[in-house]
């Protein structure tokens, strides 16, 4: 984990909310990736997918810890830890984008989603490396190399599947069609982002979308895949309105921890 600055961190609800969005994206995606353990198409992919999961989970831990400190003590004077935030928050308090919570589906869909998320996280973390918030900048500076690896990995699979066999082309195109509409939530602006852009904390969604489009278009062309044409733009994750499947993800994630209130692990 990236060491976090221990001083000069007052309560800052805006930055906390932004760190939570980033942390929730990373945690939920890490959880989905880890579901591939012992069921990937070849052993090398078990290693690779678990590696991607670990990178996301590692970033999530730092970001949630950071968010907990910025949220300040709760009514009982308790500063929320990464585990409090991961295991004790209810569904409406999770602010990850819907894209990362979607079921991984088959390997084609998982890789299509990885392409869309990684092509976003690469410019995002590159920009956040110079965030005015030291905690976020520290996490981003470390994660930027990891997400670059993730983008390479996704790119190479999407190209191989798209330009592989008829079946693989059909499957990865289907997966892409299914996840594509959810990507645009990543580039939404809202008052929180506006305020944090002004303070130099957040990354500019428009600039990131531009880089995302360039990367994704290039990879899809090489993969002989068609850019989906739908204009449907599902949204809601950033304000806690999630998809049906997310409740099941949380149930699995949180059940054991919640079954033993106050226990140490």
């Amino acid at each position: 984990m990236t060491p976090l600055p221990t001083s000069g961190l007052g309560v800052d609800l805006d930055v906390a909310a932004y760190a939570l969005r980033l942390g929730d994206d990373a945690l939920v995606l890490g959880q989905r990736l880890a579901e591939w353990a012992a069921r990937s198409p070849q052993i090398e992919e078990d290693v690779a997918l678990l590696n991607l999961a670990l990178d996301q989970l590692g970033a999530a831990r730092s970001l949630l810890t950071h968010a907990g400190r910025l949220l300040g003590p709760d009514a009982d004077g308790h500063v929320r830890t990464e585990d409090d935030l991961a295991f004790l928050r209810d569904e409406p308090d999770w602010t990850n984008a819907l894209l990362v919570e979607l079921d991984g589906g088959d390997f084609g869909r998982t890789m299509a989603r990885q392409l869309l998320v990684s092509a976003y996280q690469v410019p995002l973390y590159a920009a956040l490396g110079s965030s005015a918030d030291e905690g976020i900048a520290g996490v981003a500076g470390k994660a930027v190399k990891e997400v670059a690896y993730s983008l390479d990995h996704a790119r190479s699979w999407v190209v191989r599947l798209g330009d592989g066999t008829d079946e693989s082309h059909r499957r990865v195109q289907t997966g892409l069609d299914e996840v594509w509409p959810y990507a645009f939530e990543l580039f939404e602006r809202d008052p929180l982002v506006d305020r944090l852009l002004e303070r130099g904390v957040a990354a500019d969604p428009a600039a990131i979308e531009q880089q995302w489009q360039a990367t994704v278009q290039e990879v899809l062309a090489e993969a002989t895949l068609t850019v989906p044409e739908t204009t449907w733009r599902p949204t809601g994750g950033r304000r806690g309105a999630h998809t049906t499947g997310f409740g099941y993800l949380l149930a699995e994630l949180q059940h054991l921890h919640r079954s033993h209130p106050g226990a140490r692990w």
């Binding site: 579901e35 989970l57 990464e82 054991l256 033993h260």
Partner: peptide, 19 residues
């Protein structure tokens, strides 16, 4: 047990082990 690990630290340790 990866998806149900009771803390994020334990989850990471377990993912790394299975890897």
């Amino acid at each position: 047990w990866i998806t149900r690990a009771p803390s994020l630290r334990r989850k990471c340790i377990l993912v790394a082990k299975v890897q």
